[in-house]
């Protein structure tokens, strides 16, 4: 919790000035109070979600946060009656494969565009950048038609394909790769590495923070993606977590809020646990990509 103070950077430079203002600053209590009220707004929906997911019967509609007779029944019913674990697995596979693919291809393309000279380079860069302007909404109907013809509807491959390389990722990696000094790469070339080796052994190492940031963004984006998956997925066994959760809550759960909240909890809690471990990296990564673009 103390790392925040260190990171502002003010303390090191102007420690004395800062200390002086702190004494004067009598508003700190009010500031913390406002922030804490804000936190209550941020957190309450999750608390209520958890509370409902452990309730049963008439208590579901009760106003008490702590269930009087907490029960695991909603969770066990959910796991028994739905393919929840399958949806989890699907989401994990989709998010991991797309992330791996993007890291590989985006960084490779970014490296080539930033550091290699070949004919048509600027045209290729233009083409890729221009696709940033095309919103996904415009593509879903053509994708649906194309994928129907190819037989990729209702497959995980169909879910993943449109995201395997992203223009944003290529753009981001090009930005970072151009920041690498050419001398370093030349030195590696003189040492006998081929271009693949230079990219793999030298360039990638130097943009590690950017890679990590991209990985976080892509993983989160795919883990939570809804628009395209809900169109391309048909059967229960192919559903990703958001699609499964949406269809289950809107249909099969039959307005039983305790089940819906249990399903939502299962979708949210593991992500929060991962976030708790990597929160600093995640937050910094997001800030990094935000600044670069």
């Amino acid at each position: 919790m103390a790392e925040g103070a260190v990171k502002t950077g003010n303390v090191d430079n102007d420690g004395k000035v800062r200390a002086a203002t702190r004494v004067k600053d009598r508003t700190w209590l009010l500031k913390h109070a406002i922030l804490l009220v804000g936190i209550l707004f941020m957190i309450f929906p999750f608390l209520w979600m958890l509370a409902t997911s452990f309730k049963q019967g008439a208590e579901v509609y009760g106003i008490n946060l702590i269930p009087r007779e907490p029960t695991w029944a909603n969770f066990t019913n959910l796991l028994k009656d739905t393919d929840y674990l399958r949806w989890y697995l699907n989401s994990t596979v989709v998010a991991m494969v797309v992330t791996a693919s993007e890291l590989f291809f985006d960084s490779m393309a970014g490296y080539a565009l930033a550091k290699l000279r070949f004919p048509g380079r600027s045209i290729i860069l233009m083409v890729i950048l221009s696709t940033l302007m095309i919103p996904t909404e415009m593509l879903i109907i053509p994708w649906y038609m194309m994928f129907t013809k190819a037989g990729w509807i209702d497959t995980l491959w169909g879910v993943m394909l449109p995201g395997l390389i992203s223009a944003f990722g290529v753009f981001l990696m090009t930005q970072f790769m151009s920041g690498i000094p050419g001398d370093l790469l030349d030195a590696a070339r003189i040492d006998g590495l081929n271009e693949f080796g230079v990219w793999w052994h030298v360039a990638l190492r130097l943009v590690k923070p950017a890679l990590a940031a991209l990985a976080i963004l892509v993983f989160l984006g795919n883990w939570n993606a809804f628009l395209w998956p809900v169109i391309v997925i048909e059967s229960s066994a192919t559903r990703t977590l958001p699609v499964g959760l949406s269809l289950f809550s809107g249909g099969e759960a039959g307005s039983e809020w305790q089940l819906i909240m249990a399903a939502a909890s299962l979708a949210v809690i593991p992500v929060l646990m991962v976030f708790a471990f990597f929160q600093r990296q995640i937050v910094q990564g997001i800030a990094l990509t935000g600044m670069k673009s």
Partner: peptide, 8 residues
């Protein structure tokens, strides 16, 4: 990647 495409 093609390997992931389900066979007929």
């Amino acid at each position: 990647t093609l390997f992931l495409v389900p066979g007929a």
